[in-house]
Design a protein around this nucleic acid. Structure first.
Lengths: 214, 214
DNA sequence: GTCTATAGCGGGATAGAC
DNA sequence: GTCTATCCCGCTATAGAC
């Protein structure tokens, strides 16, 4: 029963947005808190009031991204449809998320293998664990769908744990080459996502060739 | 007709190797020259004797990676075979390169969208231009092969320029999850590469489904 | 709750010994 | 050609005003 109703975030969300934008541009080590404050239109005092350290801020951006991913994925995975349709839906959902929230997506990509070797504090390690758990949960959902699809003969026989890597990699790679353009519309983004996901499901070899190689 | 025969690199190559290892672990901004020197087993004096700045060193690692890629790709592309075979060969070549020279591959991935906004010197801009040209050349070769394959009916109709992105993205993403293990053999690496490339060519939908979606 | 000012330190780059 | 010593800037984080 929080005071002042509407659960206002008290500026935290705005800071996360600004941080995502700054981190996207220069990466964790290359971004100073002053740069984040510039994007935000304030000074670092505000940021340090809401976040203990730059590392904490970064981790929170990353966690926010993974939470959004997992929620979107689970909604599709719980819905109706064949495994092939669900797989299509999950990949589309991810592609959309990446395009619509590019700065957050970019942080998630950089943060994946950021060892944070210096994340000394136990509190930070806990957040890191949360992030990794979210990622694992997402991958597990995908793996489950692929296993179902194989069992039903809808998908080619494969090692799902392995196939998930290039699938997610291809989508995450959008953060490298995709940039929103003024002429982009929801429809054009949707078409782009569809093209990519269609490729990830069907490959590029012509159908009869696909059988020849199998 | 260089003196002292055999074109010895005078330590430059060793520095590049050490730098790649350090940059792989902590990224450009997160790596200090002292860290590179530690990996190298020397002090920064040596590094600054051979390279003007940290940025120059990083750019040279990146260029070295792209040069190796392009050479490997061109060898396959020039050889005999159908477009489908060539496409298979080029992707296999890249997958091998990434696994065998993981630190260099990782630098290439980080460096792709490192704006180097502060690469003030014209000399650095020139190297950056070289790197981008090498990448574009590689992509153009792939696009050409795909166009040939489409013309011969070996590949599904698609926009080659667009399809190349997830293809290379899936391979580059190996730098995120692949780590050499003691039990790895040349054969196991080859099998892994084959699995990934096979997926990128054939997708995951079962053949009859692939026709249904088309 | 957000500002200004500053402490303290890490790291890029250079000078000069050897 | 490589090392040691050092300059100096920029950045994290904090203290204290408002």
């Amino acid at each position: 029963m929080k005071a002042r109703g509407r659960a206002r975030s008290g500026g935290r969300t705005e800071i996360l947005d600004a941080a995502a934008v700054a981190f996207m541009e220069y990466g964790f080590a290359g971004t100073s808190i002053d740069m984040v404050a510039d994007v935000l239109g304030s000074t670092k005092g505000k940021i340090y009031y809401h976040f203990k350290s730059k590392t904490n801020l970064y981790l929170d951006v990353h966690r926010e991204t993974m939470t959004a991913y997992i929620e979107a994925i689970e909604e599709v995975a719980k819905g109706a449809g064949t495994p092939l349709e669900k797989l299509h839906g999950v990949l589309m959902t991810l592609a959309r998320q990446i395009m619509e929230r590019l700065p957050y997506a970019k942080v998630a990509v950089e943060g994946v293998d950021m060892h944070m070797s210096r994340s000394t504090t136990p509190e930070q390690r806990a957040v890191l664990r949360e992030i990794i758990d979210l990622r694992d949960r997402g991958e597990a959902i995908l793996v489950g769908i692929i296993e179902d699809g194989m069992a039903q003969g809808l998908l080619r026989p494969c090692n799902p744990r392995l196939i998930v890597k290039p699938m997610l990699g291809a989508l995450n790679w959008m953060t490298v080459w995709y940039r929103p353009r003024p002429e982009d519309t929801p429809e054009s983004r949707e078409a782009l996502a569809e093209t990519l996901v269609d490729y990830l499901l069907n490959g590029i070899a012509a159908p009869h060739r696909a059988e020849a190689r199998a």
